[in-house]
């Protein structure tokens, strides 16, 4: 019973059901094979495809926990990938590992700057998050196209390709990068007091101020973190396709990321957050995409599923809905 009431029970159950349903359509779904010391299989493939969404999702989780939202993540992905590809394209030797690393670092640093921009608009100028990040969402793709001069920049760099499509210690590099960032996020928030302070600010900004918490610095930090995550996701995406496509990179990913956060049990109003939940949410969304393909229905219909998931989750989270339709007194309602 306790276990059914766990926050992540339903998303986990849906994920298991989705995975199980694949068995009927492709019998080898769960088999993992080893080729050249690399693991292959549908499960590995789902994880590999989830990597960018996991990255963007954990950044988004922290932003949402402070009571904000970051709509610009898709644009940041496009910009970071564009800059990296541009720099790699200019290298004399595109296979230079140092050159590629510097290019990636440049992409990440630029993302960091964009994060400071978002954070400053929200925390220092006091613009509503949804509006503040809308600016970069609109302008960002233009900036990415400016960097690539409107072209789809193709690169032929083996070291760069590794980020999105390579393998190391038997696993896809992108999965390891995502796992690494998740680990950093967990350590940053749970091994320091950052998580507590973020949850306090999101839970009650006034009470937090009176407890001496400096919300401004925290807010800028989470937007910077979100932008860095998006920047890395942009590198993975562009490396995977060996090119920078300013329109396709991270298209609509902000919506998927918000969805992953909500599925993971973090409330959009801020406060308590769950990084594990977001990872679960991101994997669930990618599994949904893969499953629709393997069942043989058009991949676009996943949008319909997402619509239904968003509606159901929002209704279940809405106190008004619980009161009116489910007629179950909310357990929360102690505050008058």
């Amino acid at each position: 019973m306790n276990f059914v009431r766990h926050r992540l029970f339903w998303p986990a159950a849906i994920l298991v059901a989705l995975l199980a349903s694949n068995i009927f359509f492709s019998s080898g779904f769960f088999s993992i094979t080893v080729h050249d010391g690399h693991l292959y299989g549908s499960i590995i493939d789902i994880l590999r495809r989830s990597a960018p969404l996991i990255l963007v999702g954990i950044g988004m989780t922290l932003v949402i926990a402070t009571g904000g939202i970051d709509l610009s993540v898709g644009s940041v992905m496009a910009i970071s990938g564009a800059l990296a590809c541009l720099l790699i394209g200019d290298l004399d030797n595109q296979n230079s590992v140092i050159g590629v690393l510097l290019a990636c670092a440049a992409g990440i640093v630029l993302s960091l700057v964009l994060g400071i921009w978002n954070g400053t608009l929200v925390a220092s100028i006091g613009i509503q998050p949804i509006i503040a990040t809308l600016i970069l969402m609109v302008a960002g793709r233009g900036i990415a196209q400016l960097i690539t001069d409107g072209q789809i920049l193709n690169v032929t760099s083996a070291p760069y390709k590794v980020i999105g499509a390579g393998y190391t210690i038997a696993l896809p590099v992108s999965v390891l990068i995502a796992a690494g960032m998740v680990a950093i996020a967990v350590v940053l928030t749970r091994r320091t007091a950052l998580g507590l302070l973020i949850e306090a600010v999101g839970g009650s900004p006034t009470a937090s101020r009176l407890a001496g918490i400096q919300a401004r610095r925290l807010t800028i930090m989470v937007y910077v973190f979100s932008a860095i995550c998006a920047g890395i996701a942009g590198l993975i995406y562009s490396s995977n396709v060996s090119s920078a496509d300013s329109n396709a990179a991270g298209n609509l990913i902000e919506l998927d990321a918000i969805l992953a956060v909500v599925i993971g049990g973090t409330r959009l109003t801020g406060g308590r957050f769950s990084l594990a939940g977001t990872v679960l949410g991101a994997v669930l969304i990618e599994t949904l995409n893969v499953t629709t393909v393997s069942i043989g229905i058009p991949v676009e219909t996943t949008l319909l599923f997402k619509a239904i998931v968003v509606i159901v989750l929002c209704l279940v989270q809405s106190a008004a809905f619980r009161a009116k339709v489910l007629r179950r007194p909310s357990r929360v309602g102690a505050s008058a």
């Binding site: 600016i135 302008a139 233009g142 196209q145 409107g150 300013s246």
Partner: peptide, 8 residues
């Protein structure tokens, strides 16, 4: 793409 940047 300047459209987008200018709009932004």
């Amino acid at each position: 793409w300047w459209t987008r940047i200018v709009v932004g």
